[in-house]
């Protein structure tokens, strides 16, 4: 996976049961609709819980990360499919 670490704009659904589902994100002036979320995991960086999502827009696989401490989304990496 190509590592990026870029702050991005994400639209997500925060559903009951602490479930977060990214719906679309903007990266490099293009809007990518999430067509599939293939994996989810959580880790901590210091006191901050971070949610990781492996998502696809149909063309590429992306890793998105939501930092619960500062409410920012980061595009961690991209893997061409």
């Amino acid at each position: 996976m190509q590592q990026l670490a870029e702050r991005i704009k994400v639209a997500a659904v925060f559903a009951p049961g602490s479930q977060v589902k990214p719906v679309w994100f903007e990266w490099r002036s293009r809007k990518h609709a999430v067509t599939r979320m293939s994996y989810f995991w959580k880790d901590h960086h210091g006191g901050a819980a971070r949610l990781h999502f492996a998502v696809s827009d149909g063309d590429n696989l992306f890793e998105l990360m939501f930092d619960t401490s500062d409410q920012n989304w980061t595009l961690v990496g991209i893997e061409p499919q």
Binding site: R36, S38, Y39, A54, S56, L61, E79, Q81
Partner: peptide, 10 residues
């Protein structure tokens, strides 16, 4: 197996 779940192309 986790990597294959994470990345369906694998």
């Amino acid at each position: 197996s986790v990597e294959q779940q994470s990345n369906p192309a694998l």
